[in-house]
Design a protein around this nucleic acid. Sequence first.
DNA 1: AATGAATGAGTCTTCATTCAT
DNA 2: TATGAATGAAGACTCATTCAT
Lengths: 218, 218, 218, 218
Amino acid sequence: MSIPRKMSIETQLAAKEPKRARGKLRVAALLDAGAALFAEKGYEATTMTEIAQRSGAAIGSLYQFFPSKDALAEALFNRYAERTATALQHVVDRAPGLSSAPLADLLVDYKLALRSDRDAVVDFSSSIAAVVERRKPLRDAVRREIAAILRSANDGLTDEQATAAAVMIGEIMKTVPMLAKAEEDSRLPLIIQARTALALYIERVLDAGAVRRRGGRS
Amino acid sequence: MSIPRKMSIETQLAAKEPKRARGKLRVAALLDAGAALFAEKGYEATTMTEIAQRSGAAIGSLYQFFPSKDALAEALFNRYAERTATALQHVVDRAPGLSSAPLADLLVDYKLALRSDRDAVVDFSSSIAAVVERRKPLRDAVRREIAAILRSANDGLTDEQATAAAVMIGEIMKTVPMLAKAEEDSRLPLIIQARTALALYIERVLDAGAVRRRGGRS
Amino acid sequence: MSIPRKMSIETQLAAKEPKRARGKLRVAALLDAGAALFAEKGYEATTMTEIAQRSGAAIGSLYQFFPSKDALAEALFNRYAERTATALQHVVDRAPGLSSAPLADLLVDYKLALRSDRDAVVDFSSSIAAVVERRKPLRDAVRREIAAILRSANDGLTDEQATAAAVMIGEIMKTVPMLAKAEEDSRLPLIIQARTALALYIERVLDAGAVRRRGGRS
Amino acid sequence: MSIPRKMSIETQLAAKEPKRARGKLRVAALLDAGAALFAEKGYEATTMTEIAQRSGAAIGSLYQFFPSKDALAEALFNRYAERTATALQHVVDRAPGLSSAPLADLLVDYKLALRSDRDAVVDFSSSIAAVVERRKPLRDAVRREIAAILRSANDGLTDEQATAAAVMIGEIMKTVPMLAKAEEDSRLPLIIQARTALALYIERVLDAGAVRRRGGRS
DNA sequence: AATGAATGAGTCTTCATTCAT
DNA sequence: TATGAATGAAGACTCATTCAT
């Protein structure tokens, strides 16, 4: 897998790793509290004190492991990147041979699985320098995998076509978390719409060569 | 005793006119500065002092027109809502009779036109109470118009179907501003992908009734 | 605190200057309060809140003009440097033609005049990056003036001799503020000792050529 | 010798006596680390954690031996006081019979020997209550010894004269550590200047009675 | 009206010190 | 004893908002 899990820009932003079991639990609790609050109220509006309180720790304990608010955000992003890598590998493993509809479903499910992690990360990922740096590589890696899936399903695609399609697919996938936020009773139908829209687009992409070869769209 | 102690009412009003005009300019400049900064760094990260500075005004002047930061945001949202209404009317006017592809283009162009306004507004529109209130009605109005367009193009759609489709269309439309942020040379191809994806989805929606009419399950 | 961190490219240490009479008074009061407290308890042990309180201002007002504690220290140092320059010019103006004893007195009086300013500045001048940079040039300038006075009084001195003597004279002068801190009744005798010691040393320096010529010990 | 090597005031601040060789080594390492850091960055700017790290101990270990930062400072001061006493005794032992120049050299060498210890102690010795208390007695003891040396070399000196001279000599001696901080190639010449200045002053002091005896002003 | 100084509650962050393992 | 996590008071600094000129 080509996703960079951690970059080596040595900053003081690095979260200090706990050396005892107690510390590991703390760190996980702190990350969860931070994730929840960032998702709820946004990065700027969330205070470090709130995060500490929600995870049942003193403010000093929070700073013991995350030397700054940005460091916490970065750690959260790293966790998100790792989970993304894992989930994406899952997709890559079962994508071969799938037609547009099941492939669309696979991608939508991938997005649903990462939903809450992503919610915690989106708000700050364009405003914190250390995260901004990591963001593009991660996004590019995801796109590359999707493009690869497309090309292996349709060898008539050029690199440019596959890449552009991967970008568009990524964008359609981003609608999933939004739709999943809808009222309980409209959530499912909406996600079905996303599956449909994505399947239609993927079908078009996979047919691109065939269409040309066959000489017209159905 | 013959000296007039009071100017005529007409004269007073006339004297106020240039000041009002100047005020309008200043208000517009302040809104623009706020919009630009909110888009650049986000609502929370932007300070009132910065906004005043960028528009060449003193902080006191800013507060003369907008009694609070939230009020400024609200004004910005209102401006966005008005422009949305205008642009949407434009869409509604020329939608009738269009097939899926040109309709998709129309909607994509609508989104492109509102792009910068939206950038200024998205960041805070879920965190400021007064704006949150206005947001849903605006979004619902847009969805209703799109649903209406869909139903008038395909009278076989139920209300629920049209609404769900309108939501999905709205979401696909949201990808447009993101794609438009791409590098100069990939921007156009990407927007074409958005047009394609949207057209495919709309085509499916417009065909839905036909399928049923032609003998699908009741 | 300030020193161990890598100096960032452009530090925003510059004190903002007031544009209104009110502000100028404030700035002076703040500088005085800072000077007094730094002299009393040291830089690190003095809090910004204390400084604001002592000068009758709100903490925000302090930060209006001095964007950081370091900036305040720097401003204080700048004021000290200016006063040093003025006082030194005074010395330079009346040094020509003086013999060792009156010259020593002149230098001791110069040090006494700058005493309180120096007290405010010594504690932090070796730990704040921006000040450390300015310190050496100032000290060198003072030494250069003293060396020049020595050489014009004894043209048999080499540059190196004059410089070394200037350094030593500077050091003896530094004892003055310390001695001046003594109990009321021992202060005067002690300062007389300083005048004596300084006069003896200067006499030796001014005689250097003569001594050599006459054959005394080098 | 009248210097108190150990203060009789028992406080909880007093460092716990290490009972094992291991502990003594650790205590020495901690004191050295503290001394180095206090000299480098000052007392306030140095953290307990840093001290522990530099000496390779855990923060908990540091507190095992020194129950507070002040206690560490006090221990450091005590060590300095002991070394001062030893060095001073050395001076006292060989001072009798010396003329001004060798006496000055002796005193300068004494100061050079204690230099690094003093650097570690100066910064906090005026701000920590427990140390402030000990400081004056130590300084007075040193002055008393110097005054005694002066009086035994010149029995024409009054107590007041001898004391004032001792203070001045102490101040001139303080210039030695500063001069010793100069660049490698100017260090030696500068220290020679200090020897010279001190010798001149001492010579004057030792002559004082003679002048009176010989018929100077009463 | 316009300007910029004044205000102070609220944030992030530090660090001496205590405590559990 | 040794270790390092936990604690929270305290300090630097920010910024929306108000006020005086």
